[in-house]
Design a binder for these strands. Structure first.
Length: 297
DNA sequence: CATAGATCCTGTATGC
DNA sequence: TGCATACAGGATCTAT
């Protein structure tokens, strides 16, 4: 399940292999993969073919590849999201097409092609215009609403504290809200909360400024560790840009550890249903809030 | 507006 | 063995 560290590994791979190349041909093999591109597959291909890819960018879990601008035309980019199972593979043309190949990009002068492969089809690609954002950067329209990620030097820690403390929602739900801080998914949310001993059901409003700052530091720590190892995956579906598995031996303290002893206190890790998925936590280190969720009356 | 819940999708694992 | 069900979950849409 790609979260920020995994997506960053893919971005770096695209920068290494794809930037500077000119697209010769595009083949859309499954319409769902470009469902966010309203004008359809023909338009998608037409907006990409003949263009040179000039860079590889990321915000949170979104990736984009800005395209060389034609005279009098708006700046555009190929925008991608891997969803749960998406992969961007750079492979020789004679590599066999897998059953989940959704989009293929061929480049001028032959060589390796770029393939978007996605089993569960939650991911997708689109071509979008780039617009200015308040900090002076250029981001695609579908990314405008996405907040900066905690590893971004321009991330505003105090704004994050205010945002979290202004919400009635459970803190884990706030962590997963990509408009508050981007790049955090179910795995790193559970790991970050375990690390500081806060239960994900605690309302944001009930956390102190110091606790929210600790939480932010914790998110940075778990993501930074994963990034240092080149991304983490616990699912064979995650494969890096060259087609090699991104799996690393990495001890998880909470996520997926139901029944295993907590690394801090030995209490068995518990799993509870949350937002149609699972939350893992130590019932001893991370005590559930009691009483009314918000404390208001 | 803020918040909560449903929904999409398919391969794998598990239960009866 | 075979069929049914649960599960994985990011982003978006709908409902309250």
């Amino acid at each position: 399940m790609p979260e920020l560290p995994e997506v960053e590994v893919v971005r770096a791979g695209l920068e290494r292999w794809i930037v500077g190349r000119r697209v010769a041909g595009v083949e859309v093999l499954h319409p769902r993969a470009i469902r966010r591109h309203q004008a359809g597959a023909g338009d998608f291909a037409a907006r990409v073919e003949g263009r040179r890819i000039v860079s590889a960018a990321r915000r949170g879990k979104y990736l984009w590849l800005p395209l060389a601008t034609r005279r009098e035309q708006p700046e555009t980019a190929i925008v991608g999201h891997l969803g749960m199972s998406g992969q961007l593979l750079v492979l020789p043309p004679d590599a066999p097409d897998g059953p989940h190949l959704r989009v293929r990009f061929r480049f001028e002068n032959g060589g390796r092609e770029l393939r978007f492969v996605d089993q569960r089809t939650f991911g997708g690609l689109a071509v979008a215009d780039l617009v200015g954002d308040p900090a002076g950067g250029r981001v695609p329209v579908p990314v405008v609403h996405i907040g900066r990620d905690p590893l971004d030097p321009a991330f505003d820690d105090e704004a994050f504290v205010r945002r979290v403390r202004s919400k009635d929602s459970e803190v884990k739900r706030i962590l997963l809200d990509q408009t508050v801080a981007s790049g955090i998914g179910n795995i790193y949310a559970d790991e970050a909360l375990w690390r500081i001993g806060i239960h994900g059901s605690r309302p944001g409003r009930r956390l102190s400024r110091a606790q929210v700052l600790d939480l932010l530091e914790s998110v940075r720590a778990v993501m930074g560790e994963a990034l240092a190892q080149g991304g983490t995956s616990f699912d064979a579906l995650y494969v890096n840009v060259n087609g090699e598995s991104g799996y690393f031996e990495r001890s998880l303290n909470a996520y997926g550890q139901e029944g295993e002893p907590c690394a801090r206190c030995g209490t068995p890790i518990r799993r509870i249903a949350f937002m149609n998925r699972s939350s893992y936590f130590c019932p001893s280190c991370q005590r559930a809030p009691r009483g009314r969720p918000t404390g208001r009356r």
